[in-house]
């Protein structure tokens, strides 16, 4: 018997949240998009990670190619080579992309990007238009490449039965050693990270090993340490900087800072505050930002604050897909943090 808890979900609420698209087309919204539009939208919203041609930058997912590689030692699993259903692609783009700005791709744009990815995979011509009407006509090449879990039949029988307890092998030889790869994170003393301390040495000698990824919160305001910049901005507030460092985690997927920082999806941000826009020579900025830099844009607190509040409104055509920091306190904190970094 129902308890009568909860309330009816309103049709508008269901529409807002139930965006699932199923293999048989259930949930597919009205709309359409063509390859060329898709190419443009992809270049703007997707290419900073997936590459202009869906080839995948750095370790971000490759979306095109890979046909015939599924039995290779290094298979390339893409929309064309691996994904069984087009509905999955539409659903995922519309629901979860771009990374860091989910649910900002419109229905027609989603059709267009989906059409472009079919084109990138050599499955349609460049004049192709995908719509709700013809969506189910598309069958992806690997549609038949999956079968339901068969471990109970294929494996379990082999692994049941009383196991051997004595003299089970004649000889045991080491065949592989992790030590030869040497890719384990290490403690400062070269031991595997997180090794238990030697209890026979004095506690003082092992005191306070460095804990990785310690939570930094505004309340943790560490006293200004030797790492603080020599030319500290006037009245640098350690609590604010610490809060900014915490907010910066949202940015760190794309932007690196610090001594060894390299450009990634976004440019490094050392010295960005109060510096000229587009300061990183080796980074490929959007035309929109380069134009602004030409006009003499300087990232002072006001300009940076406005940009961070709503990047696309402040700078139409920016490649930065981040939707923005809506809280003023977050913007103030992050600018303080960025200003605290060595140039």
């Amino acid at each position: 018997e129902p308890l009568g808890l909860g309330r009816p979900a309103l049709p508008g609420e269901v529409t807002a949240w139930d965006v699932s698209v199923l293999p048989d087309g259930t949930g597919l919204p009205e709309g359409s998009g063509d390859v060329l539009t898709g190419e443009e939208v992809f270049a703007e919203k997707c290419s900073s990670c997936h590459g202009e041609f869906a080839e995948g930058l750095d370790s971000w997912p490759v979306l095109a190619g890979g046909e015939g590689t599924l039995t290779d030692r290094r298979p390339v699993k893409t929309v064309g080579s691996y994904w069984p259903y087009l509905s999955t692609l539409f659903d995922y783009i519309h629901r979860s992309m771009p990374f860091g700005a989910a649910q900002t791709v419109s229905v027609d744009e989603t059709y267009a990007i989906t059409a472009f990815l079919l084109y990138s995979n050599g499955l349609v011509e460049d004049d192709y238009v995908l719509s709700k009407a013809n969506f189910l006509e598309v069958e992806l090449p690997n549609a038949d490449g999956f079968y339901a879990d068969d471990r109970p039949e294929a494996e379990y029988a082999l692994f049941r039965g009383e196991p051997c307890m004595a003299d089970c092998a004649a000889e045991v030889k080491v065949t592989k050693r992790a030590a030869e790869l040497n890719v384990t994170p290490e403690d400062p003393d070269g031991r595997p990270a997180g090794s238990l301390p030697d209890l026979r040495t004095a506690a003082a000698e092992t005191a306070a090993p460095e804990a990785p990824a310690a939570e930094v919160t505004a309340g943790d305001a560490a006293p200004a340490s030797a790492e603080a910049p020599v030319e500290a901005p006037t009245a640098a507030d350690p609590a604010l900087i610490a809060a900014g460092e915490s907010v910066f985690k949202k940015c760190s997927a794309c932007h690196k800072v610090g001594e060894d920082a390299k450009n990634g999806v976004g440019p490094t941000l050392n010295g960005v505050v109060d510096g000229p826009a587009a300061h990183e020579e080796k980074f490929k900025y959007s035309k929109a930002l380069l134009d602004k830099a030409e006009e003499g844009l300087v990232w002072d607190e006001a300009a940076l604050g406005a940009f961070l509040e709503n990047p696309k409104r402040y700078l139409k055509g920016t490649k930065m897909s981040f939707p923005g920091l809506k809280k003023e306190e977050d913007r103030t904190a992050i600018i303080a943090y960025l200003a605290s970094l060595p140039k």
């Binding site: 699932s20 599924l70 298979p75 259903y85 999955t88 079968y147 879990d149 068969d150």
Partner: peptide, 29 residues
């Protein structure tokens, strides 16, 4: 629903590619 949604995390990811190039799906346990 009357069928699996076949979302990204149950097709592109979390499926198990076998030596013949086909893949196991729904390997939940």
């Amino acid at each position: 629903y009357d069928q699996a949604v076949e979302s990204r995390e149950e097709t592109s990811k979390y499926t198990d590619l076998m030596p013949d190039g086909r893949a196991r799906k729904w390997t939940w346990v």
